[in-house]
């Protein structure tokens, strides 16, 4: 059990190890879901923002954060939800974008569609559906290697 107030940088580092429940190659910090970490008395407050308003992963993420910090020895952890500023894919780190692509998910692009196939890098692509297996993704297909793939929607 930690008796002195824990270092906030240390807490951020611990949070950077908490994977997204749907896309485990990126962390909740990589995605920009964690907005703030603060200490109020003996309680650690982690402020998070939902990606999509109805995303079922949001409550799982809050539970995972509390569980992860408790496992590091923090006695009192609380999550708070913040809506503003609204989450944007612009907050996803460069490093996380590369990991998404390696994992087979094309990272978000301002142009509104994937830059290239995450498998063969072809740019000959077509959209199958504006929506995918989670609220944050759409379905695309590569016309060169013929494989379908997920695209992380840009919002």
């Amino acid at each position: 059990m930690v008796t002195t107030a824990p270092d906030l940088n240390q807490i951020w580092a611990w949070l950077a190890e908490v994977p997204d429940p749907e896309i485990p190659v990126v962390s909740v910090v990589d995605l920009g879901i964690v907005r703030d970490v603060a200490q109020e008395g003996d309680t650690t407050i982690v402020t998070i923002t939902p990606t999509y308003s109805g995303c079922p992963a949001t409550s799982v993420i809050a539970m995972d954060i509390v569980r992860a910090l408790e496992a590091k020895g923090l006695a009192k952890v609380e999550t708070r939800q913040q809506l503003s500023p609204a989450w944007t894919t612009d907050w996803i780190t460069e490093d996380a974008r590369a990991r998404l692509e390696e994992y087979g998910i094309a990272p978000p692009q301002p142009a509104g569609g994937p830059a290239r196939c995450p498998r063969c890098a072809s740019t000959d692509l077509e959209r199958i559906s504006q929506f995918g297996s989670t609220p944050c993704k759409a379905q695309w297909r590569c016309k060169s290697c013929l494989e379908p793939f997920d695209y992380f929607k840009c919002i």
Binding site: C55, S129, F131, P135
Partner: peptide, 17 residues
């Protein structure tokens, strides 16, 4: 299937709102 997923996603957004 694609339409099924799209409709379910739309419903989910609306329920979240």
């Amino acid at each position: 299937l694609e339409e099924d997923i799209a409709l379910a996603n739309t419903a989910l957004d609306l329920i979240g709102q």
